[in-house]
Every structure is written in C-alpha cells, then in structure tokens.
C-alpha cells in the first residue's frame, strides 16, 4: 500500500509533458512561427484558461454550477481599466487591486449565494452576471456604457513593459502555469478533499468535520480571484473592454470548456479552453452555420462524453491498467504452477 518511488510511466509522461510545455513556451512566440493574429488567439485562449481553471475548482472539484465566471471576470477587467485610464494607476498595480477587490466581492456575494443550493444557486449566479452586465452597461461615468473603455494602457510591472503579443504570450503562459500548478496542488490538499466530499455528499462531508457552507464560499472566492485575474489581463491585453464579453452566454462557454475537457481534470480545463478558442477560428469558413454545428457538437458531447475528453482518456487508462494487472496475475499464477 506504500507508494513506490521509481521512474513509473506516469513520471515519464510528466517529463514528456514538461518538455512539450517548455518547447511551446520558447518556440511559439518566435518571429515567423505563428501569425500575429493567431498569437492573439493563443493569448486569448490562455486568458480563458485562467478563468476556466477557477471554474474547474468550483465545478470539477466542488460540483457547483455557476454562470457568474464572465460577470466576475468583468469586475476584474473594469476595475483594471477604470483605475488605469481614469485615475492613471500603473496597470500592474491596478490588476493587483482588482484581485483583492475580486476576492472581497466574491466572498461577500458567495456568503449570500450559497444560502441557496443546487440549481437555485445556479439560477442566482445567472442573476448576478446579468446584474453586473447591467452595471457595466449603464454606469456611464465609470464604464462608458455599451461603448466600453478604450485606450487601456499596456501592462507595466515596473521593470518590464508588455507591448506586443509575443511578450504577452510569455507572460500569460507563465501566469497560466502558476495558476495550473496552484489548482493541481489544491486538489491534493485537505481543502481539495473537503470540496470533493461536499460535491459527492454533504452529510458525509459534515460528518468528517467539513463546514460545507464555508468550503463552497471559499471555492467561489478562488474562482472569483482567477476570473478577476483573467479579466485584468484581458483588459490590458486587448486595450479595450465593453460589456459584451462578460455576458451570461460567455459564462456558459466557460462551463462548456470544463465539461468538454473533463470536469474531474485540471488538464481538462486546458484542453477545453484550447479547443473552444481555436475551434471557432478554424470554423469561420462555415459562416452562419458555425453556431449550428457548435450547438450540435455540445449536445453530442453531453450525450457521449459526460466526463469530457479527459474522462475518455482516464477510462482508457484504467482499462489498460486493469488488463496489465490481470496479465501480471495470470503470469504469476503460471510461474507458481510451474
């Protein structure tokens, strides 16, 4: 039952993944490797991945379906944009303030929303997003309404200024990896287990000392901070924000990202965010039929892959491991018999 510390196929797999990640980090932003437009698409994908990671804590680990990701991402984006354009703050500092504000906002709202359970909570989160979008669209003096805020300065962290998509790619890549490792670590902690126990059975969770209500609130705070980080980065990367990308339907896309990738997997969030960012670009030739195909694809996904792509990979892995174990057992029996 003790862990064996040897170079297992799992560890070899991890080394290969690490090499691919490092190669992508070095090669993609090199001049001439991808077009400027596709680099922007990749950058957007990384930003969506950060937001989706926060959602994976709530949905995958905690089983809480929320439609507030885009709305809270808007909070982060607007705070960053307002502080940097209207008050002349440094953009790096503005993002940090957005994160703190996002944490406080999510905590207070989470305390109220988690008085509700299950689908009631989900419906309330739709209300929250619509409420936020209404504020973004109508608080003219601060948000400039539907026209949005333009000329948001590029990210400046004092010793480094990010002016082109290449430098943003490197920055977003590093932030995304840090966020990814954070969530991966979270899964292995007592909080990760508490959240999973709340997801699977609240009575069992409480019987093992888990405060279900506060555990869910904390997951909302983590998702909120990730969303605000993604929002702040989105604002400085795009240089322009309007209420449009923070609407309810975008929240649904974040949910689909997690479902497509696999709710139980942190890497699934990356797969989902990548596919849902790149596929629309590759399907542009379908013009008006794009959304039709997209919708059908989502329905097929829910029917045939309820646990997402990583669910299929995991199932395959378990089957293979099972077969290997059986073979080893039968070999051992044969050896004994001989």
């Amino acid at each position: 039952m003790k862990k064996k510390k040897i170079l297992t196929p799992k560890i070899i797999g991890k080394i290969i993944v690490a090499i691919i990640i490092i190669a992508a980090f070095i090669i993609i932003p090199l001049p001439g490797v991808v077009s400027r437009y596709m680099l922007k698409v990749y950058n957007d994908g990384l930003i969506y991945f950060i937001a989706a990671l926060g959602l994976s804590v709530m949905l995958g680990m905690g089983g809480q379906v929320t439609y507030s990701t885009a709305g809270i991402m808007g909070v982060g984006a607007y705070i960053t944009a307002i502080l940097s354009t209207k008050y002349g703050w440094n953009t790096g500092l503005a993002i940090i303030v957005a994160l703190i504000a996002g944490a406080i906002f999510s905590f207070v709202v989470g305390l109220a929303l988690f008085r509700l359970k299950g689908s009631y909570f989900s419906f309330a989160s739709i209300g929250l997003t619509n409420l936020l979008v209404t504020i973004f669209s109508n608080w003219m003096e601060m948000t400039e309404g539907p026209d949005g805020i333009t000329r948001i300065p590029k990210l400046d962290v004092g010793f480094m200024k990010f002016t082109d998509f290449n430098s943003y790619f490197r920055l977003l890549f590093i932030i995304a990896i840090i966020c990814y490792l954070f969530v991966l670590r979270l899964r292995k902690t007592s909080y990760g287990r508490a959240l999973a126990s709340v997801r699977d059975n609240e009575i069992t969770a409480a019987s093992f000392g888990v405060n279900c209500y506060m555990t869910k609130v904390y997951s909302f705070v983590i998702a909120g901070v990730f969303a605000c980080l993604a929002g702040g980065l989105y604002a400085v990367h795009a240089g322009f924000i309007s209420p449009e990308p923070f609407k309810y339907d975008q929240s649904a896309i974040y949910l689909i990202m997690i479902m497509l990738g696999g709710v139980d997997s942190t890497f699934g969030a990356f797969l989902g965010a990548s596919l849902l960012t790149i596929i629309p670009e590759k399907m542009r030739w379908l013009n008006e039929y794009y959304k039709l195909i997209y919708g059908v694809g989502v329905i097929i996904l829910m029917i045939f892959m309820p646990m997402g792509l990583m669910g299929i990979i995991d199932n395959f892995k378990y089957k293979m491991i099972g077969k290997i174990k059986k073979r080893k057992q039968s070999n051992a029996i044969e050896t004994e018999a001989n």
Partner: peptide
C-alpha cells in the same frame, strides 16, 4: 457506504486523517 465516489481510495481515507489532523487549509496547502 458514503464515499467520494469520484475519488480514489487514498483520497477517501485521507478525509479521515484530515479530521484527525485538523490542519487549516493553508497549512495543508
């Protein structure tokens, strides 16, 4: 039996040891 059905045996057992240890989430992190 009430377990975390989407988790491993190890995670399910560690739910018990978490209760024994009673570390804060930050300590555990």
């Amino acid at each position: 039996p009430r377990f975390m059905n989407r988790a491993s045996i190890k995670d399910n057992l560690e739910l018990g040891t978490d209760l024994r240890n009673q570390f804060t989430y930050i300590q555990s992190f």
